[in-house]
């Protein structure tokens, strides 16, 4: 049996929601230059900060988790976040590969 890349993530999102957790989905929607993971890479984040999957191979996950939690807390629908090396904030997070990525976060709605 072969698994498509998001299978585990989607099944787990369903489980977390069944357990009455709020869950957000983060997706790489655009990349420029040498980005660590391709367009369509995904991760889920629960309101408690649990996460599964990956959007960059470790460079920006912490920031994405933070953004997802704040999105759910503030009852926002979605947000696009751009990470690039010229951005001071991104340097802090450490997108060391020199690529730019856009990550779209949204709460999974019932």
């Amino acid at each position: 049996m072969s698994n498509f890349p998001e299978k585990k993530i989607f099944e787990e999102a369903d489980n977390w929601i069944k357990n009455n957790k709020k869950v957000s989905l983060a997706t790489v929607v655009q990349t420029w230059g040498s980005s660590p993971l391709g367009i369509g890479s995904r991760m889920i984040v629960s309101e408690d900060g649990d996460f599964l999957g990956s959007v960059s191979g470790g460079c920006v996950e912490a920031k994405v988790v933070e953004e997802c939690i704040s999105l759910m807390k503030n009852k926002k629908i979605c947000k696009k976040i751009d990470f690039n090396v010229s951005n001071e904030n991104a340097w802090e997070i450490g997108l060391a590969c020199g690529g730019d990525i856009s990550i779209y976060i949204e709460e999974i709605k019932l």
């Binding site: 989607f10 999102a13 999974i108 019932l110």
Partner: peptide
Amino acid sequence: MKLEIIRET
């Protein structure tokens, strides 16, 4: 995205 889309996927 709705949970329904994830389940359909």
